[in-house]
Amino acid sequence: MEALLDINWRLFAIVTLNGLTLASLYFIVASGFSLIFGLMRVVNMAHGSLYLLGAYIGFEVSEATGSWLLGIAAAAVVVGAAGAALQVSILSWMQGQDLRQALATIGVSIVAADLMLAQWGGSAYQITLPGAVSSFVPVPVAGRYAMARLMLIGFALVIGIGLWLMLNRTRVGMLIRAGVDDRRMLEALGVNVPLVFVGVFAIGAGLAGVAGVIGGSVLSVSPGEDARYLLSSLIVVIVGGMGSIPGAAIGALLVAMAETYGLAYTPTYGIVYTFAIMVAVLAVRPQGLLGRAA
């Protein structure tokens, strides 16, 4: 009996850490998604494709150069540019038409998925982590835990705090917040709003790209991941509140915890919990936990 209790606590600690690390990954992907939505009201259905593209680029670059950090940087830059291009070439033509933009991005995601399948094939890749983080660290109760996964939590904290500082403490952040509140007034004040839009799109897409490399290192990259992370981002922001970065953090935590505890303790119903949370939030607080009423 004593041994049983002992094992259960260890498992519980590990599962909790797993939930936290998965939440970190979900947060990084969803924060970009939420940022774009918050300012432009664009539901970017190609966000998952940007994640997958980032992962593949990170794989190619880190394979070629042997440097994982270069892979992250390349993914952030290239995917950020791809996001900006998406905004300039397609979405800017239908600014303000939410539904049309959502449909256009679905189209983009389908084309992108096929192009990436043609280029990288159907098999799964894994991005090699630097030796320094592919080790274990002793953790109380859990025994030991993979450094790479703990690093994920650190990444999410850095990105979360960075985003918060940028939005609340810088001029760019002020512009973005002003744009969220009153786009026309901002334009009247002489700010080049379309340029701000492109910039925000690039940041949001770049975050997806970075998340792709991290996800591709800790987990793996294969076709179909695009739809998976788009779905998780959607659920996270629906739960947390569209356009809110702290909301994305809370949403990611709830969704990832439900998923991991579900898989560990009741494997059959893991997916049900996620949607149950979404349904509950929609029923009680349709704008999301930290979302503002439209």
């Binding site: 590990i14 599962v15 797993n18 998965l22 996964r149 987990l219 179909g224 998976r228 898989l263 560990a264």
Partner: peptide, 14 residues
């Protein structure tokens, strides 16, 4: 047993 397309196996591995 895990769902098809599950990509985080850490809770099973634990």
């Amino acid at each position: 047993f895990t769902p098809v397309g599950n990509n985080d196996y850490s809770s099973v591995i634990a």
